[in-house]
Design a protein around this nucleic acid. Structure first.
Length: 229
DNA sequence: GCATTAACCACAG
DNA sequence: CTGTGGTTAATGC
């Protein structure tokens, strides 16, 4: 079921900021060393423990980055389109230290790791954009980590709902792409606690739930819960 | 003590 | 896969 096809990097309308800095020659090199593949919902893009292959650029869809912990699987972050995943593999680790799975139908552009490294070495602007990406990502991760560690479950769930509405869907009415159990893995809670917290939000008129459909009715209150727990 | 929080377990759609 | 309810251990007045 692999659908690898080639296309023109030069005319790609959704280039990353980094690739935007490349000249024609570099784009041609990139072109020869990348390929697109579409993943279905719940399909594994790469798995923790398997051999590392390429750097991946998410063109469309939604991806979860997750890792097996001592107790259970944890979703470390969700990646929306026009971002790279797997850059850390450039360190040269033989095995992936974490997994990436499509949670919606996702289109990925693979870039050969050695070519990626070569572009960084040969083009300072390209390297700079990649560093910027990694820095922003780290800041975001710190932010999320501290919130996860210091808030209790209502606050963590409120954070997640606001994240989906504001960052992922830009809409207060959306279809939750994660199962209850996955949502639990995302906010470090059990699926039962997620359900309980959700019904409590519903009871208080903060949200409306119909299966996977979620409508945020009272955003100010939800933000207050996010802040105070 | 008593209340709250959240995990664990079991059972039912 | 979800929702619910009872139980339970930890924590905080």
């Amino acid at each position: 079921m692999e659908t690898i096809m080639h296309y023109s990097c030069e005319t790609c309308p959704i280039k990353s900021c980094a690739v935007e800095t490349l000249d024609i020659e570099e784009l041609l090199i990139l072109q020869k060393n990348c390929g697109v593949r579409v993943f279905k919902k719940n399909e594994t893009i790469f798995q923790q423990g398997s051999l590392t292959s390429n750097i991946a650029y998410i063109k469309s869809g939604l991806v979860k980055i997750h890792k097996k912990g001592p107790v259970k699987d944890q979703i470390l972050k969700l990646i929306k389109p026009l971002r790279f995943i797997g850059i850390p593999t450039i360190l040269g680790e033989r095995l992936y230290q974490y997994s990436a799975t499509a949670i919606e139908s996702t289109s990925v552009c693979y870039i050969d790791t050695d070519i990626f490294r070569m572009l960084i070495l040969g083009n300072g602007k390209f390297g700079n954009e990649i560093i910027n990406e990694l820095c922003k990502d780290e800041i975001r991760f710190f932010e999320r980590s501290i919130n996860q560690m210091q808030k209790q479950i209502h606050g963590r769930l409120a954070d997640a709902l606001l994240f989906f509405a504001n960052d992922i869907f830009q809409n207060d009415h959306f279809r939750m792409p994660l199962s209850r159990s996955e949502l639990g893995d995302f906010i470090h809670a059990t699926r039962e606690s997620v359900t309980r917290s959700m019904t409590s939000f519903k009871k208080d008129g903060l949200i409306e739930i119909t299966g996977k459909n979620i409508v945020i009715l009272d955003k100010p209150s939800l933000m207050r819960v996010s802040k105070t727990g």
